[in-house]
Design a protein around this nucleic acid. Structure first.
Lengths: 355, 355
DNA sequence: CTGAAAGCGCTTACAG
DNA sequence: CTGAAAGCGCTTACAG
């Protein structure tokens, strides 16, 4: 074995091997139109024989769009994000697109750096992002101006004219809170942590609406960050206005609440009822099966990729409907209240297991 | 606004702007050695002014290694994989490497296609993979032969001389089963689904050792796929040799068991004890807090990336220790038995919550 | 310390 | 239906 890596075969090698010009090889590679059946056959077998693969870098340099999308997600260890990311990636792959993954919850500037990396490399033909910072608007706009479509997932950036995949946040939250009200609760606090995401804002809106419709008083507890949630809630639980029910704004908050309530030996739903926004796999197996608003995580990822691919194709086809590079489509997915026991409902009848 | 995307500035533009040759610009870009302070300053400000970014495609075409690693994971929706992937990606990013993500649990050929894509694009300087098919050995070997280091995560491929990050599977499993034996169980079945992964084989080995040391009879239930697990276990539970304890080989199996036991109204640990390999976030909040073997998922990802980066640097530095391109380092991470209640232990004393 | 030349592997016009 | 030429943006020797 020679010690240095062998060079990959190039178009020229294939051309030589099959006795045609490199143009003919290129044509075979890109659709095979205007090539004689005979030439095509020889080229194909030469490609086979040599194990030729087109060199992406050269193609990109020549101006071809890299079949790669950028995917920016805050935290892949969060099951909601990972479910979205998985589905998005699979859908992209199905269409021949690779996915460049960047996570950015590490610190405030991480998202900025992630976008800068994507831009500097010209590595992505389109971007799928769960935006975490309003300041990203500028970079995203610049990318769009350069012809790289952007689709925001789960939330939007005000003023940014991009593709969007949202969920019926307000409706979902309202259903959840309505349900707690049906159970007779008058003192329901809504809990989350500071976030400028409009998805959270929409959930709060849904909570407000349900509360107002019932003539109750809204009580919203917003911590600065997730770590502060337990302390804040505990304080409220021990106060004079201790609530009889909790509505949690996302799965991270829900997990904190669950830990807190267990640690404090507070029984759910007897002492306090709980409904969370965002369902998860093990919810049914918890000490108290969790009633939760289910959002179609995988579908968010799939729809996002589909939308992005459409924008990419629209762009390359020159279909610039409006002034701003064809972005702006919006998809809103439904949510569903999954009733288990933490809300106070009885255990649903078990599926009869013994046949 | 003109309607077409403006072209990015090139090195030539920067050179013109700063009144030097493009070589000088290139030198400034790559370390700045052998450049007069004055020239450097002018180049830098021109770069600033023009918003210049080097074109990755051109660099790669010229033979530079793309600062990108490939990450192949079966299923990002599985919390174990997503925790590894997240950590791996963060570590890569910290070193200036982007991550090309490919998931491949969709079907048997998915891994093959993922590797083919990586190879055809020359997109990755190194590959991090949870190998799912023994047949991947060939493609991986070819990649290594071409100078792209490979690190396998969580399991290895026999005969493939690659970097490896493993976990103390046998030891962890043994600790788990020993613990069940300490609880007095004599009839412990080990459950999983068909898989050629040696990580699973090692866990089974640990189970066997513990069972043998106690003079018991090993009972191993291996389903063909995860969907078959519940049926298979249920059958055994209803048989004459119904076990008094279960040892689950991974988190997917554990989830199936948990669902099954709940559906069947079988109380844990009273009627049957359970210990699982692979811990997860909500394990403590389950109806029966799960006793589980914890593996350091994030650390697997981090170590894998670190190892891969080392191999990449060793390669580019030409440090070919042995014949086979410097691969072959192996890292083994410890596991830990986290005792909660499903094994039969009493609830650990609560942390006193009221100060 | 600096620059002109050549070439990485492909594709886009251009001519047959 | 086919090929020779030029060039995408960079870097690697080579000469100053």
């Amino acid at each position: 074995m020679p010690q240095k890596k062998k060079k990959d075969p190039t178009i020229a090698d294939v051309a030589r091997e099959s006795g045609v010009g490199s143009m003919t090889v290129s044509r075979v590679l890109n659709g095979g139109k205007y090539v004689s059946a005979d030439a095509e056959k020889r080229v194909l077998s030469a490609i086979q024989k040599l194990g030729y693969h087109p060199n992406e870098a050269a193609r990109i340099l020549r101006g071809q769009a890299p079949r790669t999308i950028g995917l920016i997600v805050p935290n892949l260890a969060d099951p909601f994000y990972s479910a979205c990311a998985h589905a998005a990636q699979q859908m992209a792959l199905k269409h021949g697109y690779a996915t460049l993954l960047l996570t950015c919850e590490a610190d405030v500037d991480a998202e900025d750096r992630a976008l800068a990396l994507l831009r500097s490399r010209n590595a992505a033909t389109g971007v799928l992002i769960f935006p975490s910072r309003l300041d990203s608007a500028q970079q995203l706009e610049e990318m769009q101006a350069k012809g790289v479509p952007v689709v925001t997932l789960d939330r939007t950036i005000p003023g940014l004219h991009a593709g969007e995949v949202m969920v019926e946040n307000a409706e979902g939250a309202q259903k959840a809170v309505d349900h707690l009200i049906l159970h007779g609760h008058r003192n329901i606090v809504c809990i989350g942590y500071d976030s400028q995401f409009n998805s959270i804002a929409q959930r709060i809106e849904g909570y407000r609406k349900a509360i107002a419709d019932a003539g109750l008083k809204p009580q919203i507890l917003l911590a600065h960050d997730e770590a502060e949630v337990p302390r804040m809630v505990l304080k409220r639980l021990r106060s004079a206005e201790a609530p009889s029910a909790l509505f949690s704004l996302n799965n991270v908050t829900t997990a904190h609440l669950l830990h807190l309530l267990q640690r404090e030996n507070i029984r759910v739903p007897e002492q306090i009822a709980l409904v969370g926004f965002d369902d998860f796999d093990l919810a049914a197996l918890l000490a108290v099966p969790l009633t939760a608003v289910r959002q179609p995580a995988a579908e968010i990822g799939r729809s996002g990729t589909r939308l992005l691919l459409n924008l990419i194709h629209a762009r390359s086809a020159g279909t610039n409907g409006n002034g701003l590079n064809g972005a702006g489509s919006r998809i809103v997915l439904p949510t569903e209240l999954v009733i288990r026991r933490s809300c106070g409902c009885q255990a649903p009848p078990k599926i009869t297991a013994r046949q």
